[in-house]
Amino acid sequence: MKSCLSLGAALISAGLLSACGITQPVAPDTPPTPVPLRNRTIEELPPPKGKVLVSVYAFRDQTGQFKPAPDSSYSTAVTQGATAWLMKSLTDSGWFAPVERENLQNLLTERKIWRATETEKDKSAPPTLPPLTPAPIVIEGSVTSYESNVRTGGAGARFLGIGASGQYRVDQVTVALRAVDVRSGQILANVISAKTIWSRQLSANVFRYVSLQRLLEMEAGYTRNEPTQLCVKEAIDAAVKMLVAKGVKEKLWFPADPKDPKMAVLDRYGEDEMEIPPAHVEEALNRVKDGGS
């Protein structure tokens, strides 16, 4: 009987060790797995009557939060590349046409190099390099807050040395977005969105004597944390969608077809009667659609 118990304990230990091997980091030769970054809700927005030219200078981290120890005392809790996420969200929405402003100095330097390579004959001819396109609207905003441990909890049970438990933690990131009229400085629309960040941990363990002097001890666990940078992106996507909906509601920009079935995506932000834009607005939108000519 003792030999059977010893064999059983050995088999269980071997299985546990093999399971632990599975949880080791991925081997270096494993091909990379692409992370889905597309937001189909953004892409399912109804098409606009004309894209709005916008400029984005910076979308900063104003949380002042750092990663908790022991990770690092100098690493920030949220990504510092939120401007790139915002530019992607504006482009994917189909309602806005962003122009380069974050690295404007690089663009101006390249234009100077372009002009420096022109010959005297080229300089006497009409300029081949058109002027930069101005944007009538500036998109401003920031990551305003990152709250840790907004909600925590867990549960567990143990019986005769066999137990299991689970814990969770909820963080929250908040972003603010606003559209500013360049001519007057008036804030046309202002929205705020928040995204929860879930962290889950499940564990199970066994601690019991299989015989007088033989102790069986097993432990396994699983933890999953939502990537903070992707949650920031989802919050930005939601803010852009809210900005589109609020702009439609306030008649700042207009859909191509007010009766488009895709307008249902914006219904949660209020139902207002859509109006055809005035003649001068329609003309300006057509100019933007034709490339600003």
Score class of each variant (00 low, 15 high):
residue 209 Y to P: 09
residue 188 L to Q: 06
residue 45 L to W: 05
residue 15 G to Y: 03
residue 54 V to E: 00
residue 291 G to L: 05
residue 17 L to I: 13
residue 107 L to I: 10
residue 165 S to K: 01
residue 143 V to T: 12
residue 138 V to N: 09
residue 124 S to Y: 04
residue 215 L to K: 13
residue 180 V to W: 00
residue 105 Q to K: 10
residue 158 R to L: 08
residue 44 E to G: 11
residue 230 L to F: 11
residue 202 L to N: 05
residue 116 A to K: 01
residue 243 L to Y: 01
residue 212 L to M: 10
residue 240 V to G: 01
residue 231 C to R: 01
residue 25 P to I: 04
residue 111 R to Q: 07
residue 174 T to G: 04
residue 250 E to I: 09
residue 92 D to K: 12
residue 101 R to W: 15
residue 51 K to W: 03
residue 255 P to W: 04
residue 3 S to W: 15
residue 15 G to F: 10
residue 85 W to G: 03
residue 121 K to V: 13
residue 41 T to L: 12
residue 279 A to R: 01
residue 10 A to V: 13
residue 31 P to I: 02
residue 115 R to S: 06
residue 12 I to Q: 05
residue 88 K to W: 03
residue 161 G to Y: 07
residue 187 I to E: 05
residue 262 K to S: 12
residue 40 R to T: 15
residue 231 C to P: 00
residue 112 K to F: 07
residue 79 T to L: 10
residue 156 G to S: 11
residue 200 R to I: 11
residue 116 A to L: 05
residue 54 V to N: 02
residue 191 V to I: 04
residue 266 L to D: 00
residue 207 F to R: 05
residue 256 A to H: 08
residue 218 M to C: 10
residue 23 T to P: 04
residue 39 N to D: 11
residue 114 W to R: 02
residue 77 A to D: 08
residue 258 P to L: 02
